[in-house]
């Protein structure tokens, strides 16, 4: 049977500036999927741009060019997959618009 593990990286957290999630080590996993539940998104034409990042050591990061960026413009659920990522994952979030404010739950679903 394959291994599966879901981690909650942010829980009802509110952000008013760009942020990255805590590093998550998952060398055992062959596939990963981010789920971002935007509970609230406020501001002038607000947007939440989500980019998967990868790292060999949990310290130094680059964007994962293989996965497609997602943009949330209203409350709801968006998802993006990451594969062949090396051993560390995090999500980089960019807030756009005027005085943006986002409240999110961020899940990382991993499978061997």
């Amino acid at each position: 049977m394959r291994h599966a593990l879901t981690a909650v990286l942010e829980r009802n957290s509110t952000f008013t500036a760009d942020f990255v999630t805590e590093p998550y080590e998952a060398g055992w996993a062959a596939e990963a999927r981010w789920f971002v539940r935007t509970l609230a998104l406020e501001g002038d034409n607000p947007g939440l741009r989500l980019t998967a990042q990868i790292s060999p050591d949990g310290l130094h990061w680059c964007d994962d060019d293989e996965s497609a960026e997602q943009v949330a413009t209203e409350p709801g659920l968006v998802s993006m997959r990451v594969r062949e990522f090396g051993h560390w994952l995090r999500l980089r979030a960019t807030l756009t618009g005027g005085d943006p404010k986002a409240k999110v739950l961020i899940y990382l679903a991993l499978k061997s």
């Binding site: 909650v8 829980r11 060398g27 051993h87």
Partner: peptide, 15 residues
């Protein structure tokens, strides 16, 4: 008590 962080299965990777 809302941010105790998910445990990780780590291969103890270092830079």
């Amino acid at each position: 008590m809302r941010d105790f962080r998910p445990p990780q299965l780590s291969s103890c990777d270092f830079f």
